[in-house]
Design a protein around this nucleic acid. Structure first.
Lengths: 145, 145
DNA sequence: TTATTATTGAAAACAATTTTCAATAAGGAA
DNA sequence: TTCCTTATTGAAAATTGTTTTCAATAATAA
């Protein structure tokens, strides 16, 4: 989906949920809707300031919270820290992240049913949720490697 | 594997890698080898102090680093923060965590080959790694629910 | 246009982790 | 067993990342 449509969709949802669409908030939303890489708060801030120079770091965090609540962004997890966020679409999906350039892409259909059943049998746990994130090289970095 | 054997194994490996086996370090190792739940640094500290009362928080962090490097502990990831660690065994494995009591259990055999191939086909990414963590209710909490 | 109140961002506070540095102790060599 | 080397320690300080405070501003409904 094109970023500008994403921004509009997200904006409409936030408005519907009672949030106000301020300029700084829009700037942050736009950065997140447009990105093709995972971004940490300070990166989001720097980019948002291109659209609204007075954007504050706190607004970045607050807007991330709001967007997380709506399911529009998801936190990424890495061995060296879990500080980045990537856009997420509706429904159940996961991300694959490029180890090199941080490009992210979402995919659906994790197909973990068989594994979940097997783990349940082996451990006795009732499995209610899962976290899955793939990593590797994106098409661009693959070509350069 | 019994915790005392784990402690011995871990100690021997650390010694072999040139680390010294100090009393505080042993206390931390023991806590991590014995735990059946994921533990945050401050929790580890509190327990380690039962074995060696002068243990410092910094030693907890340092020992965690060392054990992570050896593959003996793994960081757990949660929506409300990624601060906990759980024991990990050699080879490729993942954890399932109880949402209620934080009990953790490791399982092998993630069987993601088919998914990885599918994602590769769909995204063009070369998949080189993955992170998987299951959550749910452990056998004990299941019975109480 | 006015009023309400959500939102802002700088500064401060908080939370988690890492670094500094003098003191201590593990462990190897003699 | 003793001595020496140096890894390790932990309190304090510093750093990093995030949240709270609060006066000012701005979105938006009436």
């Amino acid at each position: 989906m094109a970023a500008s449509n994403l921004v509009d969709d997200w904006a409409a949802r936030l408005r519907k949920e009672g949030y106000r669409l301020t300029a700084p908030r829009r700037a942050v939303i736009r950065v997140l809707a447009e990105t093709s890489t995972s971004l940490a708060p300070d990166q989001i801030l720097r980019r948002a300031r291109r659209y609204y120079p007075k954007t504050g770091l706190v607004t970045v965090y607050r807007t991330l919270d709001v967007l997380k609540g709506c399911g529009y962004v998801r936190k990424m997890h890495r061995l060296d820290g879990c500080h980045s966020y990537a856009p997420a679409s509706a429904g159940h999906a996961h991300h694959i992240v490029c180890e090199r350039c941080r490009a992210v892409m979402e995919f659906k259909g994790c197909d973990l049913d068989a594994l979940i059943k097997s783990v349940r049998r082996r451990t006795g746990y009732l499995v209610k949720g899962h976290w899955l994130e793939l990593s590797g090289l994106c098409p661009v970095c693959r070509k350069e490697a």
